[in-house]
């Protein structure tokens, strides 16, 4: 491996990491602002112009709060829980193609940290690992409510991974590849996968709401029943890590949805723009378009949170097993028939 490539990847990883942290940070502000707007309020507006520095203030508060570890808790696992949650949240961004290859100083730079052969499955694996942070933290707290939250998180994540995987299978029938880079390249212009897989997208979206523990699927931390769910016993930056991991997860899953179904960095008329602006600025516009799509999805996540009430636990399970899984299987069958017919024609 040449040195330039290592430096290039290093810079890319740093930028992606920093970006996802910044986006997650400002998502906390956006969440409060959007909640306020949807309820005819103004939201936090004292720290800085329009509340711009509110996330910094919140972060500083988190750092300076007292750190409490319960006496009966398993100390190592109590610390390992939030660390694992934020670690798994951050590693998901490695395979997402942030943009087309750009030409900088005579080098072609891929705006993707690594293009592994099984990109989608990698994300799937990281997502499925994310539940360990919640489970370990909830168990180590040695508290009934935390344990209930952890157990709910585990059963919810496993139940919703299945329809998620099935909806991805239908997508793979269309794309014929697992690599996210190729999937994005196939959706050039306006050939977005959502046009071929509307039902699959709907299923995937519902499941990603469940996987990120967002309302209406936020039963693991449901405060009306479980105090704070799995993070009842947490305080200070450990609590901050859990909350932060949720926002990073939201960012990553928005990026995945935008990449898989909404064309990633592709947009109608991109060839014309690329010819106009050249091989550096053209793809960078694509990156901006991808981020626009991501922000729309993040807004959608928050919009749903402040509209739809939480499911009851049996409703959650019924929806997962009796509605989403049959629908996902039907989607696979329909997609298979459609592909066979269109191949014959």
């Amino acid at each position: 491996m040449e040195l330039a490539l290592i430096i290039e990847k290093f810079i890319l990883i740093t930028v992606v990491f920093a970006l996802s942290l910044v986006v997650a940070m400002y998502s906390t502000l956006a969440e409060r602002k959007i909640a306020a707007f949807l309820q005819d309020r103004v939201g936090p507006n004292r720290a800085g112009p329009g509340g711009m520095f509110q996330p910094l203030a919140d972060g500083a508060k988190m750092f300076f709060k007292e750190e409490i570890i319960p006496e009966q808790a398993s100390k190592f696992l109590f610390i390992a829980g939030p660390s694992l949650a934020i670690l798994t949240a951050c590693t998901g961004s490695a395979v997402i193609p942030w943009g087309d290859a750009i030409a900088v100083a005579g080098r072609i730079v891929d705006l993707q940290v690594t293009d592994i052969n099984v990109g989608i499955l990698y994300i799937f694996g990281v997502v499925s690992l994310g539940v360990y942070g919640v489970m370990i933290g909830g168990w180590a707290s040695n508290n009934k409510f935390s344990l209930m939250g952890a157990i709910r998180a585990a059963s919810q994540n496993i139940s919703y991974e299945i329809p998620m995987g099935l909806s991805i299978i239908a997508l793979l029938l269309v794309t014929n590849t697992l690599s996210l880079k190729e999937i994005t390249a196939q959706q050039h212009g306006w050939h977005w996968n959502v046009l071929y897989q509307p039902l699959g997208f709907l299923l995937f979206m519902i499941c990603s709401f469940a996987e990120t523990n967002r309302t209406p699927f936020d039963l693991p931390e449901c405060e009306t029943e479980l105090v704070g769910g799995y993070h009842t016993e947490y305080s200070s930056m450990k609590l901050g890590f859990y909350l932060f991991a949720e926002y990073i997860n939201m960012f990553i899953s928005s990026a995945v949805m935008a990449t898989l179904y909404f064309g990633g960095y592709n947009y109608p008329g991109m060839d014309w723009v690329n010819n106009l602006l050249g091989p550096l600025w053209g793809p960078l516009i694509g990156v901006a378009v991808l981020f626009l799509k991501i922000f729309v999805f993040i807004f959608f996540f928050m919009w749903v949170r402040w509209t739809v009430p939480r499911f009851r636990y049996d409703q959650l399970m019924n929806l997962g097993w009796k509605v989403l899984i049959p629908l996902a299987i039907a989607n696979i069958v329909i997609t298979g028939i459609w592909i066979t017919i269109s191949d014959k024609l």
């Binding site: 707007f37 949807l38 005819d40 309020r41 103004v42 919009w303 749903v304 509209t307 739809v308």
Partner: peptide, 19 residues
């Protein structure tokens, strides 16, 4: 029903703030 609800909350974005 969900989309109806979401339309209602979205309309509230543009209403006068009561703060």
């Amino acid at each position: 029903a969900i989309f109806q609800g979401m339309a209602i909350t979205f309309m509230h974005m543009f209403k006068k703030k009561e703060t």
